[in-house]
């Protein structure tokens, strides 16, 4: 397959095992992303079918999480991986945890959508969620893309991209008058959920960077980042 930058192992089966982890991770990522997308739509349109679909598919995200964890454990026990292979497994195990939480946030949003429909809450104030879900989902997509292609430059761009946070700040600054206090609190919760999805997307890219370069960039300033990753342009 030759998907990994380092080329093939002498053991083709080892290659298959790593490829399987990699594609399961991407599958889980795409599914989690779709979940967020659907849950947001369910909230902003009051589409009950979509909301229950999200809650139903949560089991699938969890199933992939288990599969990937098992696969990682098996490769660790069987192959004693080193270097890039070892980093890929560590990145996958951590990435899985982030994606699982993305799935959880989607489920929270979907339950909220169901509750709103049942209690007859208006969807009107929720339309503002789109302003945040668009940049957040774009970030998650780019993060998955970086992971898929082992693209260091793209992964770095994702980790430093905090635009969705600015958007959230703006939304909170010009906060609308919502008569219903319960609905207002829910709306804030929903925004926070999306914000967290953005944070998980960035974590995922940090793992991609570790996998590709061996560098741990967590909690570094922009300058430190540039020192650590020469040849990568940090926006």
């Amino acid at each position: 397959m030759g998907r990994f930058p380092q080329g093939r192992h002498s053991s083709a089966q080892f290659d298959d095992e790593l490829n399987s982890i990699h594609s399961h991770l991407l599958e889980m990522g795409r599914l989690a992303m779709q979940q967020v997308q659907r849950a947001t739509t369910a909230l902003t349109t009051g589409d009950l079918t979509l909301a229950s679909r999200v809650l139903f598919d949560e089991a699938q995200v969890d199933r992939l999480e288990k599969i990937i964890d098992e696969e990682c454990a098996l490769v660790l026990a069987r192959r004693q991986p080193a270097a890039g292979d070892l980093r890929m497994l560590i990145a996958a195990s951590k990435g899985v945890a982030d994606l699982e939480r993305v799935g959880d946030e989607a489920a929270k949003l979907a339950s909220m959508a169901e509750d709103n429909v049942r209690s007859g809450t208006s969807v009107a104030p929720y339309t503002m969620l789109h302003q945040l879900s668009v940049p957040v989902l774009a970030l998650l997509e780019r993060s998955l893309e970086a992971l898929s292609r082992f693209d260091l430059q793209l992964a770095v761009e994702v980790t430093v991209d905090r635009r969705y946070r600015d958007v959230l700040g703006e939304l909170l600054a010009k906060w609308p008058k919502v008569a219903d206090r319960g609905a207002m609190i829910d709306l804030i919760w929903a925004l926070r959920s999306l914000e967290r999805v953005g944070d998980h997307a960035r974590n995922l890219s940090e793992q991609a960077i570790f996998c590709i370069s061996g560098k741990d960039i967590r909690h570094l300033s922009r300058d430190q980042l540039m020192d650590l990753l020469p040849g990568v342009s940090v926006p």
Binding site: Q6, G7, R8, H9, S10, S11, F14, R79, P81, A82, A83, G84, D85, L86, R87, G214
Partner: peptide
Amino acid sequence: VFTQPEHELTEAYITGRFG
């Protein structure tokens, strides 16, 4: 060496990507 080898020949050897 076992987490971030500097040379690609080292990486190829320790990860079992040889011949």
